[in-house]
Lab assay of single mutants.
Amino acid sequence: SRSVIRSIIKSSKLNIDHKDYLLDLLNDVKGSKDLKEFHKMLTAILA
């Protein structure tokens, strides 16, 4: 869910600018399909 993804971003080791950017992107995501794609992208970034 959106709140879980937000929590993953906030607890990541990324610097604050990257976190803010990803949180802004997350706010722009519409629909469950796009949310799944965003989660895939985030997982790849944090891997």
Rank of each mutant, 00 (worst) to 15 (best):
S1I: 15
S1G: 09
S1Y: 14
S1K: 12
S1E: 13
S1C: 14
S1W: 14
S1D: 13
S1N: 11
R2H: 10
R2L: 15
R2P: 06
R2N: 06
R2A: 09
R2E: 07
S3V: 10
S3L: 09
S3N: 14
S3R: 08
S3G: 10
S3I: 08
S3P: 07
S3C: 07
S3Y: 04
S3Q: 13
V4H: 12
V4E: 14
V4D: 08
V4I: 12
V4W: 03
V4P: 02
V4L: 10
V4Q: 12
V4C: 11
V4M: 09
V4F: 07
V4S: 10
V4A: 14
I5R: 01
I5M: 05
I5H: 00
I5G: 01
I5N: 01
I5P: 01
I5E: 02
I5Q: 02
I5T: 03
I5K: 01
I5C: 04
I5Y: 02
R6T: 08
R6E: 15
R6G: 05
R6K: 12
R6L: 05
R6S: 10
R6W: 02
R6N: 04
S7K: 11
S7L: 11
S7P: 01
S7I: 08
S7Y: 06
S7Q: 10
S7G: 11
S7R: 08
I8M: 14
I8A: 06
I8F: 04
I8L: 14
I8N: 03
I8R: 05
I8C: 06
I8V: 07
I8S: 03
I9F: 00
I9N: 00
I9P: 00
I9M: 00
I9E: 00
I9H: 00
I9R: 03
I9A: 01
I9V: 04
I9Y: 00
I9K: 01
I9W: 00
K10I: 15
K10Y: 05
K10M: 13
K10A: 15
K10W: 03
K10V: 14
K10T: 06
K10Q: 11
S11H: 14
S11I: 05
S11M: 12
S11L: 11
S11T: 11
S11A: 11
S11F: 05
S11G: 11
S11Y: 05
S12R: 01
S12T: 03
S12Q: 02
S12I: 04
S12W: 03
S12C: 08
S12Y: 01
S12A: 06
S12N: 03
K13R: 14
K13H: 14
K13V: 09
K13I: 11
K13F: 09
K13M: 13
K13E: 09
L14F: 02
L14P: 01
L14D: 02
L14W: 01
L14Y: 02
L14E: 02
L14S: 02
L14C: 04
N15I: 08
N15K: 07
N15F: 08
N15G: 13
N15S: 13
N15A: 14
N15Q: 11
N15Y: 05
N15T: 14
I16R: 13
I16L: 09
I16D: 15
I16E: 15
I16V: 13
I16K: 12
I16Q: 15
I16G: 14
D17A: 13
D17C: 06
D17F: 07
D17I: 15
D17K: 15
D17Q: 10
D17N: 09
D17R: 05
D17G: 05
D17L: 09
D17P: 06
H18S: 11
H18K: 06
H18Q: 12
H18E: 15
H18I: 15
H18W: 14
H18A: 12
H18Y: 14
H18T: 14
K19D: 01
K19N: 02
K19R: 05
K19F: 04
K19E: 04
K19M: 10
K19S: 03
K19I: 12
K19W: 03
K19H: 03
K19G: 01
D20N: 13
D20T: 15
D20A: 14
D20S: 09
D20R: 14
D20M: 14
D20L: 14
Y21G: 03
Y21I: 07
Y21F: 11
Y21T: 07
Y21A: 10
Y21N: 06
Y21H: 08
Y21D: 04
Y21P: 00
L22F: 06
L22R: 00
L22D: 00
L22I: 03
L22V: 02
L22E: 00
L22Q: 00
L22N: 00
L22K: 00
L22T: 00
L22C: 03
L22S: 00
L22M: 04
L23V: 04
L23W: 03
L23S: 03
L23D: 02
L23A: 02
L23G: 01
L23I: 08
L23N: 03
L23H: 03
L23P: 00
L23K: 01
L23T: 04
D24T: 13
D24S: 14
D24Q: 15
D24M: 12
D24N: 12
D24H: 14
D24F: 09
L25R: 05
L25G: 01
L25F: 04
L25K: 07
L25V: 06
L25I: 07
L25D: 01
L25Q: 05
L25Y: 05
L26R: 01
L26S: 00
L26W: 03
L26N: 00
L26T: 01
L26K: 01
L26C: 02
L26P: 00
L26I: 03
L26A: 01
L26F: 03
L26Q: 00
N27Y: 07
N27A: 12
N27T: 08
N27S: 11
N27D: 10
N27H: 07
N27C: 05
N27L: 07
N27I: 05
D28I: 09
D28A: 14
D28G: 12
D28H: 10
D28P: 02
D28R: 15
D28F: 11
D28E: 14
D28Q: 15
V29T: 12
V29M: 08
V29F: 05
V29L: 08
V29A: 07
V29H: 04
V29E: 03
V29S: 04
V29W: 04
V29R: 04
V29D: 01
V29Q: 06
K30Q: 10
K30L: 07
K30C: 07
K30D: 07
K30M: 08
K30F: 07
K30G: 06
K30E: 08
G31W: 07
G31D: 11
G31I: 05
G31N: 12
G31E: 07
G31A: 06
G31S: 14
G31P: 03
G31T: 14
G31Y: 06
G31V: 05
G31L: 09
S32K: 13
S32L: 13
S32F: 12
S32Y: 10
S32P: 12
S32T: 13
K33A: 13
K33T: 10
K33C: 05
K33M: 08
K33G: 07
K33F: 09
K33I: 09
K33N: 10
K33Q: 09
K33D: 09
D34L: 15
D34H: 11
D34V: 04
D34Y: 09
D34M: 13
D34T: 06
D34C: 10
D34Q: 14
D34S: 12
D34N: 14
D34G: 15
L35A: 03
L35N: 01
L35I: 07
L35E: 03
L35P: 01
L35V: 04
L35S: 01
L35Y: 05
K36W: 07
K36R: 13
K36M: 10
K36E: 14
K36G: 10
K36S: 10
K36F: 13
K36H: 15
K36P: 03
K36Y: 12
K36I: 13
K36C: 06
E37F: 07
E37Q: 10
E37Y: 07
E37T: 08
E37K: 13
E37V: 07
E37R: 12
E37H: 08
E37C: 05
F38G: 00
F38M: 02
F38Y: 04
F38V: 03
F38Q: 00
F38T: 01
F38E: 01
F38A: 00
F38K: 00
H39S: 08
H39W: 14
H39N: 08
H39D: 06
H39G: 08
H39R: 10
H39E: 13
H39L: 14
H39I: 12
H39F: 15
K40C: 05
K40P: 01
K40A: 09
K40V: 07
K40N: 11
K40S: 09
K40R: 12
K40L: 08
K40H: 08
M41R: 08
M41Y: 11
M41K: 07
M41I: 09
M41G: 03
M41C: 09
M41P: 00
L42W: 02
L42T: 02
L42Q: 00
L42N: 00
L42S: 00
L42D: 01
L42C: 03
L42H: 01
L42V: 11
L42Y: 02
L42R: 00
L42E: 00
T43A: 11
T43I: 13
T43E: 14
T43C: 09
T43K: 10
T43F: 09
T43R: 10
T43Q: 12
A44Q: 10
A44M: 10
A44H: 07
A44S: 10
A44T: 11
A44N: 13
A44V: 11
I45M: 12
I45G: 01
I45K: 03
I45F: 08
I45P: 00
I45Y: 07
I45A: 05
L46F: 05
L46M: 07
L46S: 02
L46K: 01
L46Y: 01
L46I: 12
L46V: 05
L46R: 01
L46E: 01
A47S: 10
A47M: 08
A47F: 05
A47C: 08
A47Y: 05
A47Q: 11
A47T: 11
A47R: 08
A47L: 09
A47N: 10
A47V: 09
